[in-house]
Design a binder for these strands. Structure first.
Lengths: 204, 204
DNA sequence: ATTTTTATTGGACAATCGTCCAGATTAAAT
DNA sequence: ATTTAATCTGGACGATTGTCCAATAAAAAT
C-alpha cells in the first residue's frame, strides 16, 4: 500500500522534474541567442529576457543565478555540436572519407554557426578566470578529443595518435578560421575545408 | 622671430605629450595587474584603481573611457612579449637552434607569465564581439606571424612557409598548454618545451 | 468543485557600474 | 613673485546590474 503510493509519487516527481529540465533547456536555448550576439561580458539578464521574450523573474525562477543559466547554455550548445561531429565521423569509412567528412563538417559549421563558436571561445576564456566554467569546458574538450580518437580508428590509423595534441592543433586552425570569418575576409566552405583537410592529414 | 617662438612651443608641446604618454603607459602597466587577475568581464575601473593605488578620477583624466585604458594595457603587453620573441629568434642561428630557442622561450613564458597570456586570450575573444579591440589584436597577430617568418629565414628554410597557418597551429598548442597550466596539472618548462619543439618541427 | 501546487509577471531593492566635475594641489611659465 | 597650466582627489550622478519577492494566473490534484 505504501509502496504503491510512494511509487506513484515518485513517478509524478520524476515527470515534474523532467518537465522542468526541458523548460530549462528551452530557456537556455533562447538565452543562447542573446549570448551569441553580445558575448559573455556584455550580456545582462535583461538582454536575455528581452531577446527571448521572457520575464526577468522567469529566469530567476528556473535558474539560481546568472552563472547557472550561462552554463546551461554552453551545455545545450555542446550537445548539438559534438553529437553532430560524432555522427559525421562515425558514418565515414576509411582514411580519405574520414578526413573529408570531418574537414567538411568543420568548415560548414564555421560558415553557418560562426556566432555560436564565437561564444564558445568567449566562455572557454572565461574558464581561465572563473573556475565555475571549468567543468563544462573540460567535459566538452574531452568529448572532442574522444571524437578525434574515434576518427583515428575509423581512418584505420594503425598506431595510437596523441589526440590531445591533435585537438590543440585543429582547434588552433579552427579558431583562426573563425576569427578571419568574423573579423576579416570571409571565405567559402570549400576553401575552409581544403585548409582543414591539410591539417587533418598531418596526424590522421 | 616667429619661427623661433613657435619652435620652442613645439618642443614644449612634444615634451609634454611624451610625458603624458609615459604616464599613460605607467598607468596601463599598473592596470594590467588587475586585469590579469580578474579578466576583462570582471574588472571594474574601481578594481583597477584600488589594485594600483590610483584614484578613480586619475584613470578618467588620462583615458577617455574604459575601453581606451584596456586597449592600452594590451598594447603594453604586446610590446613586452613580441619584442622578447623577436630577440630570441633573431639571435639563433640554424634550424635546430631556432627551434630550440623558440620552443624554450614559449615554454618559459607559459610558466612565468601565465596570467598575462590568459588575459590576452580573454581580450582576443572580446575582439570577436567588440570591433574596438580588433585593430590591436590584428596588429599583435601580424607581428607574431612576422616573427614566424623570421624564424623560417633564420632556420635556413628553403621554401616559403605558410606563416599564418603556422601561427594558428602554434597558437592552438600554446593556448592548450596554458590552459592546462592554469586549470589542470602544471608541467615544468622542459616538458612544455619538448612538446612545443615537436610542433615547430612540423613546418620549420 | 475546491484546494493545492506550479508557473509567471512586473517591479522593488541595494549594489555596482562608467562617467564626470568642482575644487585642491602641484608644477611650469612669465 | 605671480600667473597660468597641468595634475590629482574625492565624491556625486544617473544608469545598469543581479537578485529577489509579493501578487496573479494557470495547472494539477483531491
Amino acid at each position: 500500500m505504501n509502496s504503491e503510493a510512494s511509487g506513484k509519487l515518485q513517478v509524478r516527481a520524476e515527470r515534474k522534474n523532467r518537465k522542468r529540465q526541458e523548460k530549462k533547456d528551452q530557456i537556455a536555448g533562447s538565452a543562447l541567442k542573446a549570448l551569441q550576439e553580445l558575448g559573455y561580458a556584455n550580456t545582462s539578464l535583461r538582454d536575455i529576457a528581452e531577446k527571448s521574450s521572457l520575464s526577468l523573474g522567469m529566469l530567476h525562477y528556473y535558474f539560481e543565478d546568472r552563472t547557472e543559466l550561462i552554463l546551461r547554455c554552453v551545455s545545450v550548445y555542446k550537445t548539438a555540436f559534438t553529437s553532430l561531429l560524432y555522427e559525421t565521423v562515425n558514418h565515414a569509412h576509411g582514411r580519405e572519407a574520414v578526413i573529408d567528412a570531418l574537414a567538411g563538417a568543420l568548415a560548414t559549421t564555421i560558415v553557418e554557426e560562426a556566432s555560436t563558436h564565437r561564444l564558445w571561445y568567449d566562455l572557454r576564456s572565461q574558464a581561465l578566470f572563473d573556475s565555475a566554467f571549468r567543468p563544462v569546458v573540460e567535459e566538452i574538450e574531452e568529448t572532442l578529443i574522444d571524437i578525434l580518437k574515434l576518427a583515428a580508428t575509423r581512418a584505420d590509423k594503425a598506431d595510437e595518435i596523441d589526440a590531445s595534441l591533435g585537438y590543440a592543433l585543429i582547434d588552433g586552425v579552427f579558431r583562426y578560421q573563425l576569427q578571419n570569418q568574423i573579423t576579416g575576409t570571409p571565405r567559402d566552405q570549400k576553401a575552409l575545408a581544403m585548409e582543414m583537410r591539410a591539417v587533418l592529414e598531418l596526424f590522421l
